[in-house]
Design a protein around this nucleic acid. Structure first.
Length: 471
DNA sequence: CTAGGGTTAG
C-alpha cells in the first residue's frame, strides 16, 4: 500500500462478457464495507491479484459506490478509469451508473457523459430510458443545449423520448439551456396521467428564468385539472410568491401545506420562511422557523437573510452564532446573509471580521461577498478603502461593484473619487443609464457643472467613436 | 444494481 489509489493506474479487468463468471467471488462480501476510495482500490487490487479478476457484481458495486450522491470528484474519476480499462463493457447498467455520476457531479461534466454515451453506441449497447435521463441531466447542468438536442434525437430513434421519466428531463434540459420553446413542445407531449412532474419542471423553469407570473398561471392550470401539488410544486410556487411579493397567495399555500401534511418537510419550511421574509412578514417567517423540529444549513441561512433584509442586523448575527453553536456549518450563502446584515446595520468591524473568518470554513469568497464588503466600507464612508479593496481583488470586479461605490460617493459628496470610479465603470464597457444619473447628480450637487458637461461630452464622443469603429 | 421535478443572494 505504498502508492496512493489516486495515482495508481487501475489494472485491466477481465472482459465483462467472460463466458462463465464465477458465481461466487470471495471478495464480494467485503464490498459493502468499502466506503473509502482507498479501501475500494485495495479490494480491486486484491481481486486482480487473486487471479479471479473482477466479478461483474464487483464492478457494479464499485461503480455504484463511486457515483453516489456527494461522492468526491476523485471517486468519479476512479470509476471512469476502471471503466475505461474494461475491454468491452456490455452491461447497460454500468454505462447508466457512470452517467449517473456525471449527472450528479457539481460541474455537470457533459463532455465526459457524452464520451461514455458515444462509447456505448460504439460497443453496440442499446441505451435505455435510464441512460437518457442521466445523460440529459448532465447536459442540463452544463447548459449543453446542442449535445442535449442530439441526445434527444437518439432517444426519439430508440423510442425512449416519450417515456414518463424522460419527458420531464427533456423539458428541464431545454429550459435550462434557454430553449423555452422546445421545453414547451415537450410539455405538450406529456399524457394527462403523469404530468405532475412535468408541471413541476415547467413551474420551476419559469421561476428560475424570472417569470413568476407564468409559474402561477401554470399552477392554476394544474389545479384546474385536479392535479395534486407535491412538495416540489409548493416550494417552486412559494419562490414565485417571494419574487412577486404575493403574500396572500403565499399564506394560502401555507394553509395547503398544513392540510396536505407537507409542513414537516425542511425544504418546504425553508421556502415558507423565504416567502414570508421577502413578502414583508418577518413575524410569520420567525413563526415557521421556530416551529421546525429540525433545521438544516439552508433553513438557518434563509432566516438570517430574512432578519438582514428587515434591518435586524443584531438578530441576524446572534442567529448565526447560535447556528454555529449547534454545530451547523455555514456555507457561502450563510456568509452572504451575515455580511448583508452587517452592511445594513452599520456593523463595519464585525462584518470585516466575519469576512476574514470565511477562510476558517474553507469558503472562497465570491463576487457577491466582495460586493457586501464594498457596500460595508462604502456606506460607512470609508470610500478610499473601498476603492482599494475593489482594485486589489483576486478576481475581476464587475461593474456592479464599482456602481455600489459610485452611489456611495454620491451620498457622501465625494466628487473626485466619484470621477475615478466612473472612469473605471467606463473601462469595463458595461455602463448603465443609472451610472450617468448618479454621476451627474454628484457633480450637480457640488456645483461642478462644467466638470459634468466635459465628462459627459468626452464619454459621448468616446462612445460615438467606438460605435463608428464597429461598423 | 442504474432514473424525472425543489429552497438560499442579487
Amino acid at each position: 500500500m505504498s502508492s496512493s489509489p489516486l495515482t495508481a493506474t487501475p489494472t485491466p479487468l477481465l472482459p465483462a462478457k467472460s463466458k462463465s463468471p464465477p458465481s461466487h467471488h470471495p471478495l464480494l462480501p467485503h464490498l459493502p464495507h468499502c466506503t473509502s476510495l482507498r479501501a475500494l482500490a485495495q479490494l480491486h487490487a486484491a481481486a486482480v491479484k487473486s487471479g479471479l479478476g473482477a466479478h461483474p457484481a464487483l464492478v457494479t458495486r464499485l461503480l455504484t459506490l463511486c457515483t453516489e450522491q456527494g461522492a468526491a470528484p476523485a471517486h468519479l474519476e476512479y470509476a471512469r478509469q476502471v471503466f475505461d480499462r474494461i475491454p468491452s463493457p456490455g452491461d447497460v447498467v454500468w454505462y447508466n451508473t457512470l452517467l449517473r455520476g456525471y449527472a450528479r457531479s457539481a460541474d455537470g461534466a457533459a463532455e465526459e457523459a457524452a464520451r461514455v454515451f458515444v462509447r456505448m453506441l460504439e460497443e453496440g449497447v442499446a441505451p435505455d430510458t435510464y441512460t437518457f435521463v442521466s445523460l440529459l441531466k448532465a447536459c442540463a447542468a452544463a447548459r449543453a443545449g446542442e449535445e442535449g438536442r442530439q441526445a434527444h434525437g437518439v432517444a426519439v430513434k430508440t423510442g425512449a423520448a416519450d417515456h414518463e421519466y424522460v419527458l420531464p428531463t427533456l423539458i428541464n434540459m431545454y429550459a435550462e439551456c434557454g430553449d423555452a420553446r422546445s421545453a414547451h413542445v415537450m410539455f405538450g407531449r406529456v399524457p394527462d396521467g403523469d404530468c405532475v412532474v412535468s408541471y413541476n419542471a415547467m413551474i420551476t423553469a419559469a421561476v428560475r428564468s424570472s417569470r413568476p407570473g407564468e409559474a402561477l398561471v401554470l399552477f392554476r392550470e394544474m389545479q384546474a385539472k385536479g392535479l395534486k401539488p407535491t412538495s416540489i410544486t409548493v416550494t417552486s410556487v412559494l419562490s414565485a410568491c417571494a419574487l412577486l411579493g404575493a403574500l396572500e397567495l403565499g399564506r394560502w399555500i401555507h394553509e395547503y401545506v398544513r392540510k396536505a401534511g407537507l409542513d414537516s418537510l425542511v425544504k418546504v419550511n425553508t421556502a415558507l420562511i423565504d416567502m414570508y421574509g421577502k413578502c414583508g412578514s418577518l413575524e410569520d417567517a420567525i413563526d415557521v422557523f421556530q416551529g421546525m423540529e429540525s433545521r438544516d444549513r439552508q433553513a438557518w441561512s434563509v432566516m438570517i437573510v430574512a432578519y438582514a433584509n428587515h434591518s435586524y442586523g443584531r438578530e441576524a448575527i446572534s442567529l448565526f452564532e447560535e447556528m454555529k453553536k449547534q454545530g451547523i456549518k455555514p456555507d457561502a450563502v450563510t456568509f452572504l446573509g451575515v455580511l448583508y446584515a452587517c452592511s445594513h446595520s452599520g456593523m463595519v468591524s464585525e462584518g470585516l471580521q466575519y469576512f476574514d473568518s470565511m477562510r476558517e470554513y474553507g469558503i472562497v469568497p465570491g463576487i457577491k461577498h466582495y460586493g457586501c464588503v464594498t457596500d460595508l466600507l462604502a456606506r460607512s464612508g470609508q470610500l478610499e478603502k473601498a476603492y482599494q479593496f475593489i482594485d486589489e481583488l483576486p478576481i475581476k470586479p464587475t461593474a456592479i461593484l464599482w456602481r455600489t461605490l459610485l452611489s456611495a460617493c454620491g451620498s457622501h459628496g465625494a466628487v473626485d473619487l466619484g470621477k475615478r470610479v466612473f472612469e473605471r465603470i467606463l473601462e469595463l464597457d458595461d455602463t448603465h443609464g443609472g451610472d450617468y444619473v448618479i454621476f451627474s447628480n454628484l457633480c450637480a450637487n457640488t456645483g461642478e457643472w462644467e466638470e459634468m458637461n466635459r465628462e459627459m461630452e468626452d464619454t459621448h464622443n468616446h462612445k460615438m467613436h467606438a460605435e463608428w469603429l464597429m461598423k
